[in-house]
Design a protein around this nucleic acid. Structure first.
Lengths: 344, 344
DNA sequence: ATTCTGCCTGCAAACATTTGCGGAAATGTT
DNA sequence: AACATTTCCGCAAATGTTTGCAGGCAGAAT
């Protein structure tokens, strides 16, 4: 009789195709939906015998709970939204990689949205997150972002939101980012230590708080040293950095170039490649980076480490904590350190 | 009376907090849920007057349809799963960036999962996609993947699945990848054209079909030229490429190095940086790449273009087509071309 | 024989939405 | 005035799951 059962079952299973539900299982076994549900959840009310039968059939039918239904009931999705200006960026991609790895360990998945450095699209992305009803949002702002009001509203609505890397300048938000002041301070002191006299300092988009923080800390130190000439310029991309470098090399003839980011470093190196200048004999370089790009050059470029990977881990840890019990907003900093290549 | 209404409304809205539903709207207006639903959808059965009232209140309450409920009803989520061995990879991140951009244009979002080059985790990721009930899956296989059976099952269950870049060697699947044979053939012919005599050719993980395809086409051409010495080696990462290069430079003294990927190119360049060899005078280089890494060196490295960005666009286009009306499995190739830097 | 346990199971509501069907009221037609 | 038509709206079922409550039934205790 048992074998007949099995044959019948497998037959019916084939008929039913791929989408097992509690209802279908219950129909097969002449049980109610609730009993099947409880059986699968090892509820003490259900006899061992029933549990066994239910579980067997469920396995046979490859039953999988319908997440849509569960989401609807629980009002949760176990999905986190991740908003970045751009995915294909040395920093962001390692951040995402780390975040995804740690999210999955806690049973969360990542929904990724790019803002293309467009404030409009950033706002749309936030709305998309709301629409998908994600359980939390990690966001790195675009330059010119105006979405802090939206963020405020969503936070009040109970969606945990965490800013990383590119964080708002003001407001009571949870943030995780590099210790920008510290990093810039280290950079400035390094330049002083190496007795540089004529520094070209290239920073990123001046609208970003990350740029402001780094620039202010950097120049605060160097201003005190009157014997050091400092030329600060802003470049919103690699090409601008290259142009600025080329023009500076013609005019002020710096003996050192500081690059706030990988992107800028790349532009600088492309400009230097068009000259005969030797590093570090004729000109020295210091960057802020996760270390990947600096390692490609000869000599390897010295850099202040800003690890997207580490930041990703830190941010996800904080986010997951916040999901459980929401604590007060906090600004977390990832300490910086100097990694010496051969460019100083 | 109207203003009183409004005041009452705004008061109640505040009470109700952030989660407007059809039911709550209908309660406010003494209408049925169905009427409200239809009003918001401009159903002709509903009077203009009612529609106006409903829409006003919905806007006021910031009503947003509950996607969980809609997913449950429609059995769709407008989310696509994207499985890659690793996100932080020059190729994959530009692929993802392009795919995300084009997906959003069609109203889809991307759920990203990393397999960490672990077949086990790749299988888990597929199951996760099933669990989340994504509308489609884009996947780049890990080395040693065993999940084609799973893919088969899911496809039969009606989930469109598309392989990209790292595709299975056999089976009736939808694939989008580089024209690997063509690219490798171009590489081989280029080497012949430049009259190289002693070639070190470095390939990636020999378990991957992408490696096999490239290697076979490459050596098929070069085998015909008896006067060209070809040393083929496999390296699963940058460091191995560096080691192989260093050892080859000591022994066989190649006059050319071919690199199957960016990762390998990086290892090669690190090895070369430790020598006095000049490019291209002492040794020439040819790589396969999207062009970003080759552009960082001096001279810029010549490469056969493999654009993650283009591939992402192509793959998403194919996937979206497939969502509408499933056509027969097809293998799509992205044509290759040589981009000359100064390393030949 | 009756009541009391404890064990097992099912009913029904809830989550939010969509939609076929039917019904009431208002308007138009003869 | 009787009937047909149009306009507007609500009921209820369906999607799949979870869970408080209640009920049936067995055996045990009185």
């Amino acid at each position: 009789m048992f074998s007949v059962d099995k044959i019948l079952l497998s037959f019916t299973v084939q008929i039913m195709g791929q989408n097992a539900t509690l209802k279908k299982i219950s129909a097969q076994l002449n049980l109610s939906i609730s009993t099947v549900s409880r059986a699968l959840k090892n509820h003490p009310d259900i006899s061992e015998n029933t549990k066994r039968k239910v579980k067997e059939l469920a396995a046979l039918m490859e039953y999988e709970p319908n997440s849509y239904a569960i989401n609807l009931r629980t009002n949760k999705s176990r999905v986190l939204g991740l908003i970045v200006p751009d995915i294909s960026n040395m920093f962001n991609d390692s951040f995402i990689a780390a975040a995804e790895t740690d999210a999955r360990k806690s049973g969360y998945s990542l929904m990724i949205l790019q803002s293309a450095n467009d404030p409009q699209q950033e706002a749309e992305n936030l709305k998309l997150c709301k629409h998908y009803r994600v359980d939390g949002i990690l966001i790195s702002q675009s330059a010119g972002s105006f979405s802090t009001e939206l963020v405020n509203k969503y936070q009040e609505a109970g969606i945990p939101i965490l800013f990383f890397d590119r964080v708002p300048e003001s407001g009571n938000f949870d943030t995780v980012c590099m210790a920008d002041e510290e990093a810039a301070t280290i950079a400035a002191h390094t330049i002083i230590t190496y007795k540089k006299k004529n520094v070209l300092a290239l920073f990123g988009d001046p609208e970003l708080s990350i740029t402001k923080k780094r620039m202010e800390a950097f120049s605060r130190i160097l201003e005190k040293h009157k014997n050091i000439e400092t030329d600060i310029r802003y470049c919103i991309n690699s090409d601008e950095a290259k142009v600025h470098t080329t023009s500076a090399l013609k005019n002020t003839r710096p003996d050192h170039i500081f690059c706030m980011s990988d992107e800028i470093l790349i532009g600088v190196m492309k400009a230097l490649h068009q000259t005969k200048l030797r590093i570090p004999e004729d000109i020295s370089i210091l960057a802020m980076s996760n270390g990947f790009i600096p390692g490609l050059f000869k000599p390897e470029i010295s850099y202040i480490e800003t690890s997207g990977y580490e930041l990703g881990k830190l941010a996800m840890k904080r986010m997951l904590e916040n999901m459980d019990n929401k604590s007060a907003a906090r600004a977390i900093l990832l300490p910086a350190r100097l990694v010496e290549g051969g460019s100083l």
